[in-house]
């Protein structure tokens, strides 16, 4: 055999190896539905419905502010390879998702495609501004996008996911429906339990750093309408904090909600001056310790912390 022949044969072998690897890669990709979500709460619901038949990745980390995610190129790659994208819509990801989608060139997950799930669809949005005026701060034109803190909305999304996953992977359609039934009944059971746990605190007023809790408040009969931020997205100012401290003292308010990505020190200062407690809360499973277990674990944590925080008031 001549050297040239040997070279040609080596080339063929290499080609065959590459083609083989590609086929293998694509076949293994077809086995599981690749689901990409913008935030970890959607990922948790997807896991409940998809179980071990889907691969779930969240673009934003659970501790991260979902409005301020960096549009890193590695996220383009994740979107490029996704079969399903679950996004919040309602301007939640407006600051970072559009350029990623432009670069991802994946028509399966574009708006209107079967692989695109807009979680805010079918949700009754709260705080929809009648007039758009940015002098009021960072308000969202289509309403407050933090709707997943209401378990009813989680169930609406779960139903939507079972339908979407079933359409895209019809072999497992029954499996997804079964998971949905299981998740729904568990959620219904838990909701009664959560509501019972919070019944003694109905109407209690809680302070929050940022206005991201209207859905939670409404579901559990709380009043979360006093914020450290003078306007949404505007950092606390001394005169505004003085006003908040006065109100808190007058009404003997006991709790301040703070997300992991907000300024803990400001909240601590206010808490110290008013005898209240700054409470680390999150909307995303994994955002705070002991919420890693999923959506139910997250609401468990929130409900339990609120109940403990309000005890004796």
């Amino acid at each position: 055999m001549t050297a040239k022949n040997k070279h040609v044969r080596r080339c063929w072998l290499l080609c065959a190896w590459v083609v083989g690897a590609c086929i293998l890669a694509s076949s293994s990709a077809a086995a599981k539905l690749k689901v990409v979500t913008t935030t970890a709460d959607f990922a948790a619901i997807a896991r409940e419905i998809g179980g071990d038949r889907i691969d779930v990745t969240s673009l934003a980390k659970p501790t991260e502010d979902s409005h301020f995610v960096d549009a890193k190129p590695s996220l383009i790659l994740k979107l490029n390879r996704a079969d399903v994208l679950i996004e919040g819509g309602a301007e939640l990801e407006i600051g970072w998702l559009p350029p990623l989608m432009d670069a991802a060139r994946n028509s399966k997950i574009l708006r209107g495609a079967p692989g695109n799930v807009m979680a805010s669809e079918g949700i009754e949005m709260l705080d929809v501004p009648a007039v758009l005026d940015r002098s009021m701060g960072g308000v969202h034109a289509v309403g407050n996008p933090h709707f997943m803190t209401d378990p009813v909305n989680a169930r609406i999304l779960a139903e939507r996911l079972a339908r979407s996953f079933g359409e895209l992977d019809s072999k497992s359609s029954d499996y997804y429906q079964a998971n949905l039934r299981q998740f729904s009944s568990r959620l219904a059971e838990k909701l009664t339990e959560w509501q019972k746990r919070l019944t003694p605190y109905k109407g209690s007023r809680i302070v929050a750093y940022h206005d991201s809790w209207p859905y939670f408040a409404r579901r559990f009969g709380l009043r979360i309408d006093l914020f450290l931020e003078p306007k949404p997205g505007i950092p606390p100012t001394p005169p505004h904090l003085a006003h908040i401290i006065k109100t808190m003292q007058e009404e003997k308010l006991k709790l301040i909600f703070v997300e992991p990505y907000l300024n803990w020190r400001t909240a601590e200062t206010v808490a110290r001056q008013t005898g209240a407690k700054a409470m680390l809360v999150t909307q995303f499973p994994g955002g705070v310790k002991s919420t890693e277990g999923g959506y139910v674990a997250l609401i468990d944590y929130l409900v339990e912390s609120v109940a403990k925080g309000l005890e004796g008031t």
Partner: peptide, 9 residues
């Protein structure tokens, strides 16, 4: 570099 608990970036 940006920490995963960055406040507004």
């Amino acid at each position: 570099w940006k920490p995963s608990t960055a406040e507004h970036g």
